[in-house]
């Protein structure tokens, strides 16, 4: 297995998003540096809109992540309710 990673700015929203990620992904490892926070997690990391909304106390469109993101590693999948980073195991799937 390998780690996926996401890096966020240390802004007001950024800090709440980091907290939300940590509460949804107990295996996440957090490194704080000047102006940024890097989160690494074995295999897979999921951001849930609901958890972020609870932290922020307002409604949150996951695409707002665009404002706080600095970097990421892993395959991205985003829909209305979650944003997932993952390294998939198993053989390559041919697109039909």
């Amino acid at each position: 297995m390998s780690k996926v990673s996401i890096t966020l700015q240390n802004t007001d929203d950024g800090r709440q998003i980091v907290d939300a990620i940590v509460s949804d992904n107990p295996a996440a490892e957090v490194s704080r540096m000047p102006a940024l926070t890097k989160i690494d997690c074995e295999g897979r990391l999921c951001l849930k809109r609901e958890t972020i909304e609870e932290r922020l106390g307002r409604s949150f469109d996951l695409q707002e992540l665009q404002l706080s993101l600095i970097s990421l590693a892993g395959n991205v999948d985003e829909d209305d309710d979650s944003f997932t980073l993952a390294w998939e195991a198993g053989p390559a799937t041919k697109n039909a």
């Binding site: 940024l36 665009q66 600095i70 970097s71 590693a73 991205v76």
Partner: peptide, 17 residues
């Protein structure tokens, strides 16, 4: 500089993808 850097880098996540 850190602000323009991160403002640019916030697009970078999309570019990396």
């Amino acid at each position: 500089t850190v602000t323009f850097g991160f403002s640019a880098q916030s697009d970078e996540a999309r570019h990396m993808t």
